[in-house]
């Protein structure tokens, strides 16, 4: 295979796990990969983890501008650096940033794109990817007619794996080009939250939660196991939870190791957004709720009774380990 580039993502000097997931899979397929990181300041932890996960070479595009993310800046710097490298494949994580700059980069290379892929397979010089569509109600294979093939990979679907390799780390001045849209300020959420699309465990609530305040019982339970809290469309539309917590076809598509649906009936558009979770648990009063047909374990009972017990049981488990 020719020149394969992974655009690795970091935040505050810490690598995003999805970058290592992709790199590990490339290694398993025997693909020599250059990992490109954009940022400024101490990125030694990032470059080191890329080396230990099998990068053949690590390149840091440095510029003070990249202290924070910028759409145009990332696309410009990547295009500027990659063009003379004659890339055949460019891949990154399907995170909010990856999804944002990648289409601009694809347009610059006048090539095609496949977003949020769940697998990729190299055959000689070609790569084919599989990506869910209709929020996972089906999936399709995508092939690329021209190079570079550009795609992003969904977090949490591939396994990370260490590789015993050494690789050179090169620093290059990143060229952000002209930036017309600038971030003036960013305010983090007051409650410390785990990002839904990257969470290992998600606890979601439906309209049966009955109020925004009642989501507290899910938050308490989530806190014991480091889980993210999600919501169904019905709960969001009723004003119990903000839209950024919505799981489903008009919200986020997630694939955690464990998805616990509390008081969610299981509308087709919700199931579409979480069906690739490894293990699904449903807690619902209604034994006929469609969600039970998609779950590994079900508890037919009132979530207001079950969730606090579950929180206690998680706490007990944690105190033992």
């Amino acid at each position: 295979m020719g020149n394969v580039f992974l655009i690795a993502e970091q935040k505050d000097g810490n690598i995003k796990r999805v970058s290592l997931e992709i790199l590990s899979e490339l290694c398993r397929q025997g693909i020599a990969t250059t990992a490109v990181v954009i940022g400024f300041g101490d990125l030694s932890k990032v470059t080191e983890s890329l080396v230990t996960h099998g990068a053949s070479k690590v390149v840091v595009l440095e510029n003070e501008v990249f202290t924070q993310y910028n759409t145009e800046g990332y696309a410009n710097a990547l295009h500027h650096y990659l063009t003379p490298q004659n890339p055949s494949v460019i891949v990154t994580g399907a995170t909010s940033h990856g999804k944002d700059f990648l289409p601009r980069l694809a347009a610059k290379f006048a090539t095609g794109i496949a977003v949020d892929c769940v697998s990729f397979q190299f055959t000689g010089e070609k790569v084919a990817v599989r990506r869910p569509v209709y929020a996972g109600k089906c999936s399709k294979q995508v092939a690329f007619a021209v190079a570079p093939a550009i795609f992003s990979v969904r977090p949490n679907v591939l396994q990370t794996q260490m590789a015993s390799k050494s690789a050179a780390v090169e620093k290059v001045v990143g060229n952000p080009g002209t930036i017309k849209a600038k971030i003036l300020s960013t305010v983090a959420s007051q409650i410390k939250k785990v990002e839904l699309t990257e969470a290992d465990i998600i606890i979601s609530g439906g309209r049966s939660l009955k109020s925004a305040d009642n989501f507290k019982i899910l938050n308490d339970c989530a806190a014991t196991v480091g889980a993210a809290v999600g919501a169904s469309r019905a709960a969001v539309d009723a004003g119990y939870a903000p839209h950024d917590m919505q799981v489903g076809q008009t919200g986020k598509t997630v694939s955690p190791k464990l998805y616990i649906a509390c008081g969610i009936s299981g509308a087709i558009q919700h199931l579409a957004g979480m069906r690739t979770s490894k293990i699904i648990v449903a807690i619902n009063k209604d034994p006929e709720a469609p969600i039970f047909q998609k779950t590994d374990y079900g508890i037919v009972a009132d979530l207001f009774e079950v969730v606090p017990l579950l929180t206690e049981e998680f706490k007990r488990l944690k105190s033992q380990s």
Partner: peptide, 24 residues
Amino acid sequence: SKTIDSDYQLPPERAPGKKLTGDI
């Protein structure tokens, strides 16, 4: 077009799970 679609597939059906029994 720069990409070619093929092999649409429905997701595998999940095997039916178990409903737990006993008191809560």
